[in-house]
Amino acid sequence: MIRYDLTCKNGHAFDSWFASASAYDALEKAGQLSCAVCGDARVTKALMAPSVKESEAPRQPRRLSEPGTPLERAMAELRRKVEANSDYVGDAFAREARDMHEGRSPERAIHGEAKPEEARRLIEDGIPVAPLPFAPRRRTN
């Protein structure tokens, strides 16, 4: 995994994790990146400082459930709204989106997961989809 500091053309700064440097490059080339704050697709890597461990006593870590920065609070609020106002369909996202678009299933707000090639086919076929700036929580039985 690799973390990049990113910026959009509107000046918003945020970071994101990628499986590898080549995974970032592939997502950028496919137009699959967007600003976590405003949704702008014109995203670039920002200059980053190396990660250096502190030599002093470690700071008390914040619990992950407590967003600290304005960006973290905005992301938490976006996640809360998405989860409260849409149905999680998991790996069936591409099929569900296509079925709704083609009238085989009633329209409703959904979120889930799709492979990059599935998302690309949906977009190419004119089916409106957008990536979320966070991974869905896994739901188990």
Rank of each mutant, 00 (worst) to 15 (best):
residue 4 Y to A: 03
residue 7 T to K: 12
residue 8 C to D: 11
residue 9 K to A: 15
residue 9 K to G: 11
residue 10 N to I: 01
residue 12 H to S: 05
residue 13 A to Y: 09
residue 13 A to Q: 11
residue 13 A to M: 09
residue 16 S to Q: 14
residue 17 W to T: 10
residue 21 A to P: 07
residue 21 A to K: 08
residue 22 S to A: 12
residue 24 Y to A: 01
residue 24 Y to S: 05
residue 25 D to F: 00
residue 25 D to H: 04
residue 28 E to S: 12
residue 28 E to C: 05
residue 29 K to Y: 00
residue 30 A to I: 01
residue 31 G to M: 04
residue 31 G to H: 01
residue 33 L to I: 02
residue 33 L to Y: 01
residue 34 S to C: 13
residue 35 C to I: 01
residue 35 C to F: 05
residue 35 C to H: 04
residue 36 A to D: 08
residue 37 V to I: 13
residue 38 C to S: 07
residue 38 C to N: 07
residue 38 C to R: 06
residue 38 C to A: 06
residue 38 C to L: 03
residue 39 G to R: 05
residue 41 A to G: 12
residue 45 K to M: 06
residue 45 K to D: 00
residue 45 K to L: 05
residue 46 A to E: 07
residue 46 A to N: 06
residue 47 L to T: 15
residue 48 M to W: 01
residue 50 P to K: 05
residue 50 P to W: 00
residue 51 S to M: 13
residue 53 K to T: 12
residue 54 E to C: 08
residue 54 E to A: 14
residue 55 S to C: 00
residue 55 S to K: 10
residue 55 S to P: 07
residue 55 S to L: 09
residue 57 A to F: 08
residue 58 P to G: 13
residue 61 P to C: 01
residue 62 R to P: 03
residue 64 L to M: 11
residue 64 L to S: 15
residue 64 L to E: 15
residue 65 S to F: 06
residue 66 E to F: 07
residue 67 P to M: 01
residue 67 P to E: 04
residue 68 G to W: 09
residue 70 P to N: 05
residue 71 L to C: 03
residue 72 E to D: 09
residue 75 M to Y: 01
residue 75 M to T: 13
residue 76 A to Q: 04
residue 76 A to L: 04
residue 77 E to I: 00
residue 79 R to K: 15
residue 80 R to D: 13
residue 80 R to A: 15
residue 82 V to W: 00
residue 82 V to G: 04
residue 82 V to M: 00
residue 82 V to H: 04
residue 85 N to L: 05
residue 86 S to P: 08
residue 87 D to S: 14
residue 87 D to A: 12
residue 88 Y to K: 02
residue 88 Y to Q: 06
residue 88 Y to N: 12
residue 90 G to H: 03
residue 91 D to G: 14
residue 91 D to N: 15
residue 93 F to H: 03
residue 95 R to A: 15
residue 96 E to N: 10
residue 96 E to Y: 10
residue 98 R to N: 09
residue 98 R to V: 07
residue 98 R to L: 13
residue 100 M to I: 04
residue 101 H to P: 05
residue 102 E to H: 11
residue 104 R to S: 10
residue 105 S to G: 06
residue 105 S to T: 14
residue 105 S to R: 15
residue 105 S to K: 14
residue 105 S to A: 12
residue 109 A to D: 12
residue 109 A to V: 01
residue 110 I to H: 02
residue 112 G to Y: 00
residue 112 G to Q: 03
residue 112 G to I: 04
residue 112 G to F: 01
residue 113 E to G: 06
residue 115 K to H: 14
residue 115 K to W: 10
residue 115 K to G: 10
residue 117 E to M: 07
residue 117 E to D: 14
residue 118 E to H: 10
residue 121 R to V: 08
residue 121 R to S: 11
residue 121 R to F: 02
residue 122 L to E: 06
residue 125 D to K: 09
residue 127 I to C: 02
residue 127 I to V: 15
residue 131 P to N: 09
residue 131 P to L: 09
residue 131 P to D: 07
residue 133 P to W: 04
residue 135 A to W: 08
residue 137 R to L: 12
residue 139 R to C: 06
residue 140 T to V: 09
residue 141 N to Q: 12
residue 141 N to M: 10
